[in-house]
Write a protein that binds this DNA or RNA. Sequence first.
DNA 1: GTCTATACACTGATAGAC
DNA 2: GTCTATCAGTGTATAGAC
Lengths: 212, 212
Amino acid sequence: MVTQPRSMSKKDRRLESERMIMVAAEKVFAEAGFGGATMQLIADVAGLPKANLHYYFPTKEALYRRVVQDIFQVWLKAADIFDQASGPVEGIGAYIDAKMEISRRHPAGSKVWASEVMHGAPVIQDYLETTLEQWTNGRITVIQSWIDRGLMAPIDPRHLLYMVWATTQHYADFGHQIETLNNSEPLTDAQWQAATDSVKTIILKGIGAKSA
Amino acid sequence: MVTQPRSMSKKDRRLESERMIMVAAEKVFAEAGFGGATMQLIADVAGLPKANLHYYFPTKEALYRRVVQDIFQVWLKAADIFDQASGPVEGIGAYIDAKMEISRRHPAGSKVWASEVMHGAPVIQDYLETTLEQWTNGRITVIQSWIDRGLMAPIDPRHLLYMVWATTQHYADFGHQIETLNNSEPLTDAQWQAATDSVKTIILKGIGAKSA
DNA sequence: GTCTATACACTGATAGAC
DNA sequence: GTCTATCAGTGTATAGAC
């Protein structure tokens, strides 16, 4: 636990405490799942007594909900880059770069998201039906316009998006398996770059992407 | 619960009971995770009193271990098709077909496997280090030989395998999300075929695969 | 082999002193 | 706001009748 400067306002200290708890919670939820995680363990990782967690978050489920919502925001923000692109090479290439970077820097978040969806999205079903669906449909329109302009082959945009999600998130969600198959060593900078290059090469070539 | 014919031998009845429990366990572990699953719920799904589970499987963990091992066997068996192929179009194409079929027919198993790996493979770490590593290295050798013979582009075979795993398993592990984005309807036969075709088209074209 | 009843441990949540 | 002590509920596992 890090001592907080006394110069902080009450609001800042509350936000700081919440943030510390959520960092610990994300890690524990990712490693143990919602059912396997315990408030005691989250408290230990955060360096606080268990009762403090219940002071800032009324229930375990409320804490979990906040963690999942946070991840979704990070994930959506990374997708902005998509819209600034003039064509599939720039747009999908940059999107793959951004998602691979998140898998590398935020693997716990990706795992919590995967676990939530795998269990039927009991907590974020409404986000899937509103925000995610709208975002997806918007991106499908963009990809379709690239196809119509002859900038890429007539691939179903929806399945292309699924492939990008699946492939990039795999390096976070199945990171343990990948590390085991890498002589139980974490991927080096060069290996992450090689992974990203492989993914981009196969997908961009596979859809016949041309620069705009 | 289905009444068992009295013609069965004791051994057959034991195997039959174990199988019924394991089918229920796979479903419950997939939906709730290891920590969220309860022996009571598994017993209810299997149509047996809770105590019977402990008669056939000493602990919850032992039952879970058997479920994960079973999935791994199914998964390995589907990969045999890889070795009968003369080139990447046949080999990788058939492998994608087989894995998509497993995702469709065995989604619960795929989710249990994903969950196990995401949580650091506490139960099947030894399989990752032995069987999976050997299988992977063998397949890398095959793919490399295709590259050397000019049958496909010089893609890192390891990342190609990861892409096939990620993409095909995504349709099982994230099936709930995909269904939600499909107007909350399960994919039809035609949609599964379109998904499989999209995946095969992009990957085979992306690696510049040629028939042998 | 099968089931009911129960022991024992642990978890989420809270009361109340400071 | 923070912490200790504790409660109520649930979970795994087992004892013992049939």
